[in-house]
């Protein structure tokens, strides 16, 4: 960690839980979440804002956490992949990704999920093309995206029908 002079205490809520932690001002939000709060579900794939693996929800909006400083999250609300399931019940998107083999190595999955949660909040009835555009900033080297698109359409349908998650 850097010297105290360049450190600030950051107060924020992550997945509904309040945290107060010191962090170097130059630390990225992704590193802060992963290494200071030990929420390692958010992954770091490129650190230059292209791959989307580090996507989180910042005050409900998707953002690349490698392109934010931790100190910028002071006073804000963050949702990471760890905050999507309701206890043992997985979010419908999580369940659908498993059903449709929308993940293989799973490294891009947290960023896909947070991005898609925002999409379905904004647009509960997306077309396949809407889903493709929504995840166009999330790179996946394993799946060819097909299972992810299918899973999202399936989850959207189930969410519209009011079906819950899966434990």
């Amino acid at each position: 960690m850097d010297s105290v002079a360049d450190t600030r205490t950051i107060e924020l809520r992550v997945n509904g839980k309040a945290y107060s932690r010191p962090a170097p001002v130059r630390m990225t939000l992704s590193d802060f979440l992963r290494h200071e709060l030990k929420l390692t579900g958010t992954h770091v794939g490129c650190e230059h804002g292209v791959c989307g693996a580090c996507t989180i929800l910042f005050d409900g909006r998707s953002a690349r956490s490698c392109l934010m400083l931790a100190v910028q999250a002071n006073g804000h609300e963050i949702t990471t992949v760890e905050g999507l399931a309701n206890g043992k019940d997985m979010h419908p998107l999580q369940a659908a990704l498993s059903d449709h083999h929308g993940l293989q190595c799973g490294f891009c999955t947290p960023g896909m999920l947070t991005t898609l949660v925002e999409l379905l909040n904004d647009n509960p009835s997306p077309s396949a093309e809407d889903v493709r555009v929504a995840i166009s900033g999330n790179l996946c080297r394993c799946t060819g995206y097909e299972g992810i698109v299918a899973a999202t359409l399936d989850a959207a349908q189930k969410m519209r029908a009011g079906a819950g998650g899966r434990s």
Partner: peptide
């Protein structure tokens, strides 16, 4: 000056820019 960070932050991460001070406008 740091605005939305979508250009400056990658340049900071890659150390293409080395500012002594970052003034965050957010």
């Amino acid at each position: 000056a740091l605005a939305g960070g979508q250009s400056l932050m990658p340049m900071l991460n890659m150390r293409f820019v080395l500012p002594d001070h970052v003034v965050d406008l957010n």
